[in-house]
Amino acid sequence: MLKEGIIRGGKGFYGQPIGILMLDAVVPRMPGDIGNGFTFNFPVRYKVVKGAPGTKIIFSKDPSLLQPFIDGAQELEKEGVRAITTSCGYLALFQKQLADSVHIPVFSSSLIQLPMVARMIRSDQKIGILCANSTTLSEEHLEAAGISNIPVVIKGSENTPAFYNVFPTNGDKLDYYACRDGVLKMVQELLEEHPEVGAIVCEGSNFALFRPHVQEITGIPFFDIVTLTHMVYRAVAPVEVLGGCL
């Protein structure tokens, strides 16, 4: 609500509450992907972190990449966003440093949902993690996301070429139907191998594109970076924008 009719400025533009730090990548991004603005029913602001392709994030823990992401987060904060996320779950490794670098919420990875999801399911169930590569998602990533004593099982996409040869390895051509079927097979194999899985949390941001199909086929709760972004938006958007429905 306006107080005394005074409106203060100070920024070049307004109305983009969520900032998204994007990898320097060429992968196709359809609606449903974190990197497509039509995925959201609210405005988002993108910033590409130059020199940071997914291959360098996924397959190496290069500390020199931290500062460019900090710079990008600080730029987004100055531009007026109210919360910041990224397009790669492996950036959980930088969660603490990114959060400490700005004065607004940062959720670097869908993995930070793991403690919350663990409290939602039965104590004798586990969380299934879908990730880009099961050999490179380390204990360090999980610890940086705040995971302690949470039973998880990990399924990587390295044996799903329609997905792996595009998103983790920065390919520029997507066979959507083959990729969809490959992800569904990943999930079905995960559930067959581990029937104790009670929910799925995606490290890989691009798995969000296939959430409707996974939920339709399996009915299992499916948490990804897009569902998390919608939740955070509801927490930071002005009440008047939300229509006073909070």
Rank of each mutant, 00 (worst) to 15 (best):
K3A: 01
K3W: 14
G5N: 11
I7F: 04
P17E: 07
I18K: 06
L21P: 07
D24T: 08
A25M: 08
D33N: 12
G37T: 13
F38H: 08
N41R: 05
F42W: 04
K50D: 13
A52C: 15
A52L: 12
I57Y: 05
I58Q: 07
I58H: 14
S60G: 10
D62R: 03
E77K: 15
K78E: 15
G80Y: 02
R82Y: 11
R82G: 09
A83M: 07
T85N: 05
T86L: 05
L93V: 12
F94I: 04
K96I: 04
Q97R: 13
D100M: 14
S101P: 05
V102W: 03
P105C: 09
Q113N: 15
I121R: 04
R122E: 13
R122A: 13
G128K: 04
L130K: 06
S134W: 00
S138E: 12
A144S: 15
A144I: 13
A145C: 06
S148K: 15
I150Y: 00
I150H: 02
V152I: 10
I154P: 01
K155C: 02
P161K: 00
Y164D: 12
V166Q: 06
D172P: 10
L174M: 12
D175T: 08
Y177H: 14
A178D: 11
G182L: 06
E193N: 07
P195W: 09
E196D: 14
V201Y: 01
F207W: 03
A208H: 01
H213Y: 07
E216T: 12
P221D: 05
V226Y: 02
M231V: 11
M231A: 09
M231I: 15
V232W: 01
V236Y: 04
P238I: 01
V239A: 13
L242S: 10
